[in-house]
Amino acid sequence: KRYRAVYDYSAADEDEVSFQDGDTIVNVQQIDDGWMYGTVERTGDTGMLPANYVEAI
Score class of each variant (00 low, 15 high):
residue 41 E to T: 07
residue 35 W to T: 06
residue 16 E to A: 07
residue 53 Y to M: 12
residue 6 V to L: 15
residue 47 G to V: 01
residue 55 E to D: 07
residue 32 D to S: 15
residue 36 M to F: 13
residue 5 A to M: 00
residue 46 T to H: 09
residue 22 G to T: 05
residue 57 I to W: 09
residue 9 Y to W: 06
residue 4 R to M: 09
residue 4 R to G: 05
residue 6 V to S: 07
residue 47 G to Y: 01
residue 12 A to D: 07
residue 14 E to Y: 10
residue 55 E to R: 11
residue 5 A to R: 00
residue 42 R to T: 05
residue 11 A to Y: 03
residue 19 F to Y: 00
residue 22 G to C: 05
residue 10 S to A: 12
residue 45 D to T: 08
residue 54 V to M: 06
residue 42 R to E: 05
residue 11 A to L: 02
residue 15 D to F: 14
residue 47 G to W: 02
residue 31 I to P: 03
residue 30 Q to F: 14
residue 39 T to K: 07
residue 45 D to N: 09
residue 6 V to D: 04
residue 42 R to K: 07
residue 51 A to D: 06
residue 57 I to L: 10
residue 23 D to P: 00
residue 53 Y to H: 09
residue 19 F to G: 00
residue 52 N to K: 13
residue 28 V to C: 12
residue 25 I to R: 00
residue 55 E to T: 12
residue 15 D to C: 15
residue 20 Q to W: 10
residue 4 R to H: 08
residue 38 G to K: 01
residue 13 D to P: 02
residue 22 G to Y: 04
residue 44 G to D: 05
residue 14 E to F: 11
residue 34 G to F: 15
residue 40 V to D: 00
residue 34 G to D: 15
residue 38 G to T: 00
residue 55 E to K: 12
residue 42 R to W: 04
residue 1 K to H: 11
residue 12 A to N: 12
residue 57 I to G: 05
residue 3 Y to R: 03
residue 23 D to K: 02
residue 3 Y to W: 09
residue 53 Y to N: 05
residue 52 N to H: 12
residue 39 T to Q: 08
residue 54 V to A: 05
residue 56 A to T: 08
residue 21 D to V: 15
residue 14 E to M: 11
residue 7 Y to F: 12
residue 3 Y to T: 01
residue 23 D to V: 03
residue 17 V to A: 05
residue 1 K to R: 11
residue 53 Y to F: 11
residue 12 A to K: 15
residue 22 G to A: 04
residue 5 A to P: 02
residue 34 G to Y: 15
residue 12 A to Y: 09
residue 44 G to W: 06
residue 50 P to I: 05
residue 5 A to C: 08
residue 56 A to F: 13
residue 8 D to W: 08
residue 51 A to V: 10
residue 23 D to T: 01
residue 41 E to C: 12
residue 40 V to S: 01
residue 26 V to H: 07
residue 25 I to N: 03
residue 1 K to M: 12
residue 8 D to C: 12
residue 36 M to G: 01
residue 27 N to V: 14
residue 2 R to E: 10
residue 8 D to Q: 09
residue 21 D to Q: 15
residue 42 R to N: 05
residue 20 Q to N: 11
residue 49 L to P: 00
residue 27 N to C: 13
